[in-house]
Design a protein around this nucleic acid. Structure first.
Lengths: 192, 192
DNA sequence: TGCCGAATGTGATGTACATCACGTAGGTAC
DNA sequence: GTACCTACGTGATGTACATCACATTCGGCA
């Protein structure tokens, strides 16, 4: 499917836009291609854009004491990603984003999003719902963190996103689950 | 300050409404008083409303296997609370909400929120930003969970909300931090 | 083809936490 | 006053994990 069509159908699930309105909205997005391993946002950067993933897989991660990495999000097609804290508060990036595979994204600047939202009520509606879904997902993950042990969280992750198993190295799965790669390795060898 | 004025100033930080628009918006809120211990939402309930806290302190919590309680949020004045998953997806409540102290809230139904949002662009703008703040807070807490040990999270919580120390019993603080009450008790007696 | 670094497996050991068990103090009901 | 309940402290013990160390495998590339 064409890039433009992917975004159009994604938005149509939530908001009603005329073709003209969508074309206007779409004109603010900038397509961008990245190679595997390429960095999109690096800690300390000024953050101006958010990214809508067309193809490939990115990761948004935080690095603690220059040692441990925690993955906040695997961003897959039709997902949005950025350092939203830095983007909205106009502060420097505290999380980084890079590409696990080659990837195509659509770039939208903070300025343009706010402009479009103020111009098009339905665009504001769409972004409210998008953020809402993110909030619910984040809260669900938080609960899962408190409530489930590592094995249960691992199985939950793979049942939600089976493609991750072959797509991303195991130590990144561990970094998402918040355990060491050794523990994860032992987990799925100890039983079945 | 008057109830109406509290909400008005809260919204004014994010959205620009005329007095008439605010009065119209406010007409959809229903004031409600609760006693300490009273239940606002119980697991399994149909969820129709969200709540804006005027005074007092509520907790939103999840109970696992009928045994362990995890607190998702202490809701204090000018905070919003509900089971948003159930509210937006029209499913039964999986989390419960009750009152830690006597409390006054303003009730807003899901239906009325969506109605107001579609009628008033600025209301939609306000709710987008409110949700956004919730999303950022939730993500920050998730990171803190992965990155910090219990002691650090305890100190973080009390430095953000010092009033909690005297307001809520320690075992609820433990349920927010995701540790046992015994561990929390040992934590702040072992040092300093 | 052979080399090298990245990814992964696995043992030994230490530790932060849960869990169980029991004790105490303060508040409330009768 | 007595009874009871809730909050809270604290010891003993078990366990899931981290950490360190080292071996092995594999994919990309010179």
């Amino acid at each position: 499917m064409e890039t433009k069509e992917i975004l159009k159908q994604h938005i149509a699930k939530t908001a009603t836009l005329t073709d003209e309105q969508f074309d206007y909205l779409f004109s603010h997005f900038k397509p961008q291609s990245y190679k595997k391993g390429q960095v999109v946002i690096s800690e300390g950067d000024k953050v101006d854009n958010e990214y809508f993933v067309i193809s490939g897989c990115l990761k948004a991660f935080f690095i603690n004491d220059e040692i441990k990495m925690y993955i906040l999000q695997f961003a897959m097609p039709t997902w949005w990603t950025s350092d939203y804290g830095a983007l909205y508060n106009h502060t420097r990036a505290t999380i980084s984003i890079d590409c696990i595979t080659d990837a195509e994204v659509l770039c939208l600047s903070n300025h343009d999003r706010e402009k479009i939202c103020s111009e098009l009520h339905q665009a504001e509606h769409f972004f409210r719902w998008r953020t809402n879904r993110g909030y619910l997902a984040s809260q669900k993950r938080l609960l899962s963190f408190m409530n489930n042990d590592t094995k249960a969280r691992y199985e939950e992750l793979l049942s939600l996103y089976p493609q991750l198993y072959n797509l991303v190295p195991k130590h990144l799965i561990a970094a998402y689950l918040g355990v060491s790669r050794e523990t994860l390795s032992r987990l799925y060898h100890s039983h079945k």
